[in-house]
């Protein structure tokens, strides 16, 4: 140890295992070719637009509306998913009932089901003549082909992110804490709301941010159910596709660059939540 520290800065700590150079080389080469070069191509193309062109493309009312709809719907869906996702995680961790294992496995369905399949299924389901839409239509509630449809699709897509982030942390809650609260006279509601839920906060926030990030960029499951009216139910990824089909590459590039910035900001927020959580709560959400 003394020897290594005497050598000062070094790229890696010594190890008897072979293959570091090869493995890291393959990783960096592949990462550069597949991820870094294409992504920097987008950065380069949007900077080549020049600041003024970029700004006028980015502040185009249709673009702003599309970004607002993507973001707003993803935010609402993530909120719904936090409420029901935490409840579902609680039910799956704490209670035993017939079919629990099946439900637990089905939570991952949105990860496994192709988004286009989810899209046409949800549309048919929530359309005015669909199984669920037909029940809601007499009440005057329209889901499919309205912004509400976007929220429904994003709830489907985002649910596993919240459940799978919160569930492992819930499983590790120490029962003794609850027993202590109960012996000190807290009723069950107080124990849950003041002792258990605050400890889950970082996991819930991470799940919310993951669901939000996924929802903002989601395309396949949304375009079928949204109705895609400009300024009303047109999401940002769809507008990129429309601009591409018009061969309006500068506009597509500008919207994509904006969305990429939003993704990076979300990634940063998620990492900050996890760093904060490790410091404050001793787990990495």
């Amino acid at each position: 140890m003394a020897l290594t520290s005497a050598r000062g800065w070094q790229f890696r700590q010594p190890s008897v295992l072979p293959g570091f150079g090869l493995a890291l080389g393959v990783t960096l080469l592949w990462l550069t070719l597949i991820v870094l070069i294409p992504l920097s191509g987008l950065a380069w193309r949007s900077s080549a637009l020049g600041w003024q062109t970029f700004w006028s493309l980015a502040t185009d009312p249709r673009t702003l509306h599309a970004l607002w709809i993507s973001f707003g719907c993803a935010f609402l869906a993530a909120l719904v998913n936090v409420v029901f996702g935490v409840m579902l995680a609680w039910v799956l961790v704490r209670y035993r009932f017939p079919g629990r294992r099946v439900i637990d496995a089905m939570v991952d369905l949105p990860f496994a089901l192709p988004t286009a399949v989810a899209g046409i299924a949800l549309t048919t389901l929530y359309a005015p003549n669909g199984w669920i839409g037909a029940v809601l239509a007499p009440l005057g509630i329209k889901i499919a082909f309205t912004p509400a449809g976007i929220v429904v699709a994003l709830i489907f897509v985002g649910l596993p992110f919240v459940v799978r982030t919160v569930q492992p942390i819930m499983e590790e809650i120490d029962r003794e804490v609850e027993e202590a609260a109960a012996t000190l006279g807290a009723n069950r509601f107080q124990t849950v709301s003041r002792i258990l839920l605050p400890d889950l906060l970082p996991a819930v926030l991470t799940g919310f941010a993951l669901a939000l990030a996924r929802g903002v960029g989601e395309y396949g499951s949304v375009i079928f159910i949204a109705g895609n009216l400009p300024y009303v139910s047109e999401i940002a990824p769809l507008l990129i596709v429309i601009r591409l089909e018009e061969f309006n590459y500068p506009a597509a590039t500008a919207i994509a660059a904006l969305m990429l910035m939003v993704s990076f900001a979300m990634l940063l927020v998620i990492n900050l939540i996890q760093a904060w959580s490790r410091r404050r709560y001793g787990y990495g959400a």
Binding site: G41, G217, L238, I240, A252
Partner: peptide
Amino acid sequence: SVSPVVSGLIFV
């Protein structure tokens, strides 16, 4: 964390 459409666009 990249939107699927943006992932396609970068290759276009």
